[in-house]
Design a protein around this nucleic acid. Sequence first.
DNA 1: TAGTTGACATACAGTTGGTATACTGAAATA
DNA 2: TATTTCAGTATACCAACTGTATGTCAACTA
Lengths: 210, 210
Amino acid sequence: MSETLAQQAYKDLKQRILEGTIKTGDLLTERTLAIESGISRTPLRAAISRLQKEGVVSRLTNGTLMVLPVTVEQLLEIVQVRRLMEGAAAARAAERPMTTALNQSRQIMQAYVEGKDVAFDSFWMDDDAFHEAVAEAADLHLLPAMLREMRSIARRCTITRTHDRFAEQAAEHIAVIDAIEARDPAAAVAAMEAHFDSVRSRFLGWLARP
Amino acid sequence: MSETLAQQAYKDLKQRILEGTIKTGDLLTERTLAIESGISRTPLRAAISRLQKEGVVSRLTNGTLMVLPVTVEQLLEIVQVRRLMEGAAAARAAERPMTTALNQSRQIMQAYVEGKDVAFDSFWMDDDAFHEAVAEAADLHLLPAMLREMRSIARRCTITRTHDRFAEQAAEHIAVIDAIEARDPAAAVAAMEAHFDSVRSRFLGWLARP
DNA sequence: TAGTTGACATACAGTTGGTATACTGAAATA
DNA sequence: TATTTCAGTATACCAACTGTATGTCAACTA
């Protein structure tokens, strides 16, 4: 089952944006992108249409294509929504068997607590794995895709990248996993909510810096 | 001494942006604006160039003209800078004779404390008058122009317009004026700083709302 | 096999910004 | 006073872009 040119272009473009090779606020032109991809504008436009629907790129009123900046307001809203959703997911996960993915995530997080130092994108992937493991342990099948969507937005916000207290975040993740393992839903939701409260106050603290 | 067409266009455009008739994020086209103003593109471009220098509009990389959005980060920075500058101005003003403008501003602010209700733009002008009166009472001749610049930026940020506790702000203004009248520099700077701290925490509180 | 559909390539029209050129009136200069 | 210069302005031209239309081809279905 081969991918269409449009699908390939979509994946390629999205990856470049998530990696930061193409930056939020950058303007794109269909012809240039089409030439770079070795395809014509038609499938390229289909790929762009899809990215538009996901809020990754936006057409300005004159048709110009821009990689959509993500505002602080949007970022804070995502933190709030995820706090609700992932808190509930952690409580559900605590009522179900412990998973291999959660165990693996805990080991990875332990390394950060002990001082492991990596680039933002590496930590982001381990962070991805943690949140995905919780959602899957909760048997919530729509949640992983929703998380991916929201996390892809958050990743594009410039403040997110100022966020470098990996050891603290790792410790918060471990607290969630421990509560899930202990089959304590109340502790699990509290730990997950504390994690997001902590994320939020870091963002606000960055904003409020003198 | 008559104004050039470029100067007229500049003033008109800027006013429309400050009033919110043209919104931040809007795209502008030279031809449309020129036709609306009844002039050719050439003086219109001179007006735009001036607005560009002031950070009111921006050229995207493809030449598209956009009314520059003002981010929350910029707004908070302006609040910080003004806290420093206007705190110092209030202290200086407290070492100088009380002025008519400060007395007038106090009366106007008293009406707000007593419940006067107006639209944002009306309050904004009274707010302008207060801050300008303090700067002039401080004999700081460069400060008013700098304030106008920063306030014109702040005015264009969408959060600024969510700010509707006029009575509270008016009471803070009165505290500054009272301290100036009492010739108490320490109290004046403290009152002005408290005012900006209050403004800042309102913005942050709006951001942090659940 | 003929018809339909999805994917794709290419062409065309309209709009925009950038830039060049021409014009005009006022001020300066010889 | 006549001429020149300069600032301000109007207009024309070109390249580049998006939106849309049209044509082609391969795969699928009846």
